[in-house]
């Protein structure tokens, strides 16, 4: 159960299924379907609410560790089987190291030579690399997603023609696509710009990230009712003015959850693409390296997975900042002096 090569864009390493700490990174992908159902949420939360949320998150983490350790203590050491199919992980040191061992491993040297990085430093460096690559992918994905959504909202024909392909694009197995993209990239020559490997990885991250943005944004752009559209028509507003004053602001509540999913997708996409294109420097490579020693001691591999989870969390935090920026006016009295707290909701 410690093989690290994922088989599809949405499933991470299969350790995750047993409730490992990587669930934060993959949770977004399974929630992808929620993008269309996401309700507008203008409500700004006061500080107390925010503190409560942080405490809840910490409590959830503690609970997760407790469950992990509890299973270690009482779970079967040869794993649970149902009709001969393994359904429960083995509660052994190799399969499920203690949480403190996983943390302690961060301080160990990566290789036993002088001047080697500790595992923690290696994970942090890899995380930084993957994050930058994923961020580039996220930016490209968001730009492409927004442009696609605007084009689809502008012309019904474009929507009819494009939307099926947008949806189909996400069913292409990423592991098959990644080497192809890397191969094309190698042949690409954009003027003086040298196509580098990480760019291929970014492209694949973008390929995953654009989808929730395109779908969520399209829904948001189409969210204003006929009344609002007629109102703009009565002002003889051009299509661009209608976009600027009506459709774009109306799409913000749809865009935010979409961005969150896109961010998670970009991290997953980057890591998976690193693995399947063999790009060095990122979490993906680390997962491959560490999984080779996982049969004897899996705690290192868990550290790499932890890094992926933290990368996902950092991205989620980034999106929260974007959210703050986008709803600032909404929560602070239209930019005028007096802050107004919204009643209800």
């Amino acid at each position: 159960m410690t093989r690290a090569t994922p088989t599809s864009p949405t499933t991470g390493p299969d350790i995750v299924a047993s409730g490992g700490p990587a669930s934060a990174a993959t949770g977004g992908a399974s929630a992808r379907h929620d993008v269309a159902a996401a309700a507008p949420a203008w409500a700004g939360s006061p500080w107390r609410e925010r503190l409560r949320r942080v405490l809840l998150a910490v409590a959830a983490l503690v609970l997760l560790c407790a469950v992990w350790e509890l299973y270690r203590a009482v779970g079967p050491t040869d794993g649970g089987r149902l009709f001969g199919v393994p359904v429960l992980p083995r509660a052994t040191d190799t399969a499920m190291p203690h949480t403190w061992d996983i943390v302690a491993q961060l301080g160990e040297k990566e290789v036993r030579t002088a001047g080697s990085d500790t595992v923690g430093v290696a994970v942090a460096k890899a995380m930084w690399f993957s994050l930058r690559v994923a961020f580039a992918g996220l930016v490209v994905g968001v730009v492409v997603g927004v442009l696609l959504a605007v084009a689809m909202a502008r012309l019904r024909i474009v929507e009819r023609g494009l939307l099926p392909y947008v949806i189909a694009s996400q069913t292409v197995p990423l592991v098959a696509l990644a080497p192809l993209v890397a191969g094309w990239g190698g042949k690409l020559q954009l003027g003086s710009l040298e196509w580098e490997r990480w760019m291929s990885v970014s492209m694949i991250a973008a390929y995953l990230a654009f989808f929730p943005v395109a779908v969520g944004m399209l829904r948001g752009l189409q969210s204003p009712g006929p009344n609002a559209v007629e109102l703009m028509r009565s002002y003889a507003a051009s299509w661009w003015q209608t976009l600027l004053r009506l459709r774009l602001p109306a799409s913000v509540p749809f865009l935010l959850p979409a961005l969150r999913l896109a961010a998670a997708s970009a991290v997953i996409g980057a890591i998976v693409a690193e693995i399947s294109t063999g790009t060095r420097g990122g979490i993906g490579r680390l997962i491959i390296d560490y999984s080779q020693s996982a049969s004897s001691d899996a705690s290192r591999l868990y550290d790499a997975v932890l890094g992926a989870a933290v990368a996902g969390l950092l991205f989620a935090g980034l999106i929260s900042l974007v959210e703050l920026a986008l709803t600032w006016r909404r929560r602070h009295g239209g930019g005028r002096a007096r802050p107004i707290r919204k009643v209800g909701t």
Binding site: N227, A228, L246, P249, A250, V252, R330, G334
Partner: peptide, 8 residues
């Protein structure tokens, strides 16, 4: 009334 909720 059809007011835009994101505007004051």
């Amino acid at each position: 009334a059809g007011l835009l909720e994101w505007r004051t």
